[in-house]
């Protein structure tokens, strides 16, 4: 007689040679520790004027935090980034969708997009400071224009990839345009919007330092320029580290939002 229960026993999946040790969490910790280790070794090998160690840098961070300098400059930088990012996303999404939907417009703006994508960013910042003066308007405008072409191109591709069958379905059932935009078009563009937003924010976050370094008297970029002139590598690293930390927090939050927005993609396992 066949033992049915025995037949239903499937062999367990091999879990590697060190089951339980090399899980996702521990691998991530290992990755972080190895990075820290490389920093410690590098700091031991090089002069503290070139590469200060993690403890020294963290101590500097703490001093700046207590004096309020770090939070002030981080907040100024973040405000510039968020305004530019918001403007670029709204304008870029609308323009990208229009360019994707209307071929003549795509051709008409083609040269502008190539110009925007290939222009060295530093030229853009210099031009903005020359036109608007050394002020926040110039910095934010240049930062917006830095990010805008990438957003337009991504959203253009997203619009071109809209499923014509779902649009036909909407036509067949004579759905009102607003409902079609909300329930058929936007959900298809959302992956492009989210993907672009992550890239755009990261780009804006990096470029703002350049803008501040060139023509502002506040912000993380200004502080980095200041400490560079003082040959203070600890100060440079401390501000760099603070920026990296903020960006990492934003990126993790984006991941969580993405997970929530695309839960429909995850099939159940019966």
């Amino acid at each position: 007689m066949i033992d049915r229960d025995a037949q239903l026993e499937y062999p367990r999946r091999a879990e590697g040679r060190f089951p339980g040790l090399l899980t996702g969490g521990s691998l991530r910790l290992l990755s972080l520790l190895s990075l820290l280790g490389a920093w410690v070794v590098g700091a031991a090998l090089l002069s503290p004027n070139v590469l200060p160690g993690p403890l020294e840098t963290l101590a500097f961070c703490w001093r700046e935090l207590r004096s309020g300098e770090l939070t002030f400059h981080l907040a100024v930088t973040m405000r510039r980034v968020l305004i530019a990012f918001g403007l670029a996303m709204v304008l870029g999404t609308v323009l990208g969708a229009l360019v994707g939907a209307f071929k003549p417009l795509d051709k008409l703006l083609g040269a502008w997009l190539v110009f925007g994508l290939t222009l060295p960013r530093i030229v853009l910042f210099v031009m903005a400071y020359l036109i608007f003066g050394l002020n926040d308007t110039a910095a934010v405008a240049a930062l917006t224009l830095t990010v805008l072409p990438t957003v337009i191109v991504q959203l253009r591709e997203g619009t071109k990839a809209l499923d014509p069958k779902l649009l036909e379905l909407s036509r067949a059932y004579r759905r009102p345009p607003l409902l079609v935009w909300r329930q058929v078009v936007f959900p298809q563009l959302l992956p492009f919007v989210v993907g672009t937003a992550r890239g755009a924010l990261s780009l804006a976050w990096k470029m703002v330092v350049l803008a501040e370094l060139l023509g502002r008297t506040s912000g993380v970029g200004y502080q980095i320029a200041f400490y560079f002139q003082m040959f203070n590598m600890t100060g440079i690293l401390a501000y760099g580290l603070a920026m990296m930390l903020v960006l990492a927090i934003i990126d993790v939050s984006f991941s969580a939002l993405t997970e929530r927005a695309f839960r429909w993609r995850r099939p159940l396992r019966f």
């Binding site: 069958k165 779902l166 379905l169 067949a172 059932y173 409902l179 329930q183 959900p187 429909w264």
Partner: peptide, 24 residues
């Protein structure tokens, strides 16, 4: 009033089954 069925189910994948009916 017209109803349509296509070769494939053509449901909106980001809407629940109930919301797919509500869509029309």
């Amino acid at each position: 009033r017209r109803g349509y069925m296509f070769q494939e189910p053509r449901l909106l994948p980001w809407l629940s089954v109930r919301d797919n009916l509500r869509f029309v």
